[in-house]
C-alpha cells in the first residue's frame, strides 16, 4: 500500500463529509436528526469537521419520546448543546403524552405516536427539506437497499420499489414543496467502523455503552434497565443488579442490555467482534411486524 492510498476509514470519512457538505449547499433548510447514540456521535463529529472552524450551518433535532435513558438527555444537553454549542431543537409529541401513550402497554403504538408521528410533525412544523439520519446499511435488510439520498413524498413515505438512480457521488437533491430527502451519510459504515472511528478520534459518548453494575430485570431474555421510577414491573419480575451495557440506545423500556465486563472502548469492540448475535437483536421494535418490520415502518415514514 503506498502513502497515497487512503485507509478505508479515511475513505468513509471523506465520503460522509462530502455528503454533508452537498446537503448544506443544495438544500434550503436541512436538519440533522440527532438521537444521542453512537451513530449520532459520529455524525456530529463529521458535521463539525465538514465546516470547521465554523459550526454546522443547520440545527440538530432530537425527537424525544420522553422515555429515553436519563443519561442520554444529560449527555445531549451538557455536551452537544452546552459544550459544542450546537443549535439543538427538541420535539416532543404532547398530544401523545396527553393520551397517556407509553411503551409498556403497547410498544408499537408508542413508537408510532411518539417517534414516527412526532418526527413527521417536527419536520412539517419547521419545513425542513432534508434531514440527516445516522442509519447504516449494515443494520437491517431493508436499510441495505436504501439510497444515500432517500426520497420521501409529502407524507414522508419511502417507496422501495421506485428509488431514484444514484450514480458515483452525485446526489439528486430535487424536491417539490412538501417533499423531502432523508440523507444517510453513514450508509456505508459498519458497526465496527463506527466503533473504530470513535476510538481513533476519541469521540465522547454516553457511558451507557460501557458495562457497569445497573439495576435490571430480565424480560423475554433481554435485560431491561430500571432507569427511573416509571418502570413497570410485570408479575414475577425481580430487579437485580448486573454488569450490563447497551449496544444501541433508545427508549429504555424497549432497549435490551447485554451482560458484559467491557468497561473500556477496546473491550466493547472486542466483545462486539466476538459476539454471535447482531446489534439489533436487543431492540424490541424491530420484532414488531415480523420479518418486514423495518421496511413497513419506513414506508410509513419512520426513519
Amino acid at each position: 500500500m503506498n502513502s497515497y492510498h487512503l485507509t478505508h476509514l479515511k475513505q468513509l470519512e471523506a465520503e460522509s463529509i462530502h455528503i454533508i457538505r452537498e446537503v448544506a449547499a443544495e438544500f434550503k433548510k436541512p436538519v440533522m436528526l440527532y438521537s444521542v447514540g453512537k451513530d449520532s456521535a459520529v455524525m456530529t463529529h463529521l458535521a463539525l469537521k465538514a465546516f470547521y472552524p465554523d459550526k454546522p450551518p443547520f440545527p440538530f433535532l432530537h425527537v424525544d419520546t420522553t422515555w429515553k435513558f436519563k443519561e442520554m438527555i444529560a449527555f445531549r444537553d451538557n455536551y452537544v448543546k452546552n459544550e459544542l454549542g450546537i443549535e439543538l431543537l427538541v420535539h416532543i409529541n404532547h398530544e401523545g403524552l396527553k393520551l397517556g401513550i407509553n411503551p409498556f402497554e403497547n410498544s408499537e403504538k408508542h413508537t408510532e405516536v411518539m417517534k414516527t408521528d412526532s418526527l413527521k410533525a417536527a419536520l412539517n412544523k419547521y419545513g425542513f427539506d432534508a434531514a440527516f439520519g445516522g442509519a447504516r446499511r449494515d443494520e437491517e435488510k431493508s436499510r441495505a437497499k436504501e439510497r444515500v439520498f432517500s426520497f420521501r413524498d409529502k407524507f414522508h413515505r419511502w417507496d422501495p420499489k421506485n428509488q431514484r438512480p444514484e450514480l458515483w457521488s452525485l446526489y439528486n437533491a430535487k424536491v417539490n414543496p412538501g417533499e423531502s430527502i432523508r440523507v444517510f451519510p453513514l450508509s456505508n459504515w459498519t458497526e465496527l467502523d463506527i466503533w473504530q472511528y470513535i476510538y481513533m478520534e476519541k469521540i465522547p459518548l454516553p457511558d451507557l455503552y460501557l458495562a457497569k453494575p445497573r439495576k435490571v430485570v430480565n424480560r423475554n431474555g433481554i435485560w431491561i434497565h430500571v432507569n427511573d421510577e416509571r418502570m413497570q414491573l410485570l408479575p414475577g419480575e425481580v430487579v437485580e443488579e448486573r454488569m450490563v451495557r447497551f449496544r444501541t440506545l433508545g427508549c429504555y423500556p424497549l432497549t435490551g442490555g447485554v451482560e458484559s465486563d467491557a468497561t473500556t472502548l477496546p473491550q466493547v469492540i472486542q466483545e462486539m467482534l466476538l459476539t454471535k448475535t447482531s446489534e439489533r437483536q436487543g431492540r424490541v421494535i424491530d420484532k414488531d411486524g415480523g420479518g418486514a418490520g423495518m421496511e413497513l415502518k419506513k414506508i410509513q415514514g419512520y426513519f
Binding site: R137, D138, K141, S142, A144, K145, P160, K161, L192, E295
Partner: peptide, 22 residues
C-alpha cells in the same frame, strides 16, 4: 440480500443491496 417484501414474494432482486465484510 433480497431484503424487500416484493423481492421475497417474487423471488427476484429489484434494487441494489449493500453488504459489508472484511
Amino acid at each position: 440480500t433480497d431484503g424487500l417484501r416484493a423481492e421475497r414474494e417474487q423471488g427476484i432482486t429489484i434494487d441494489v443491496a449493500y453488504r459489508y465484510f472484511s
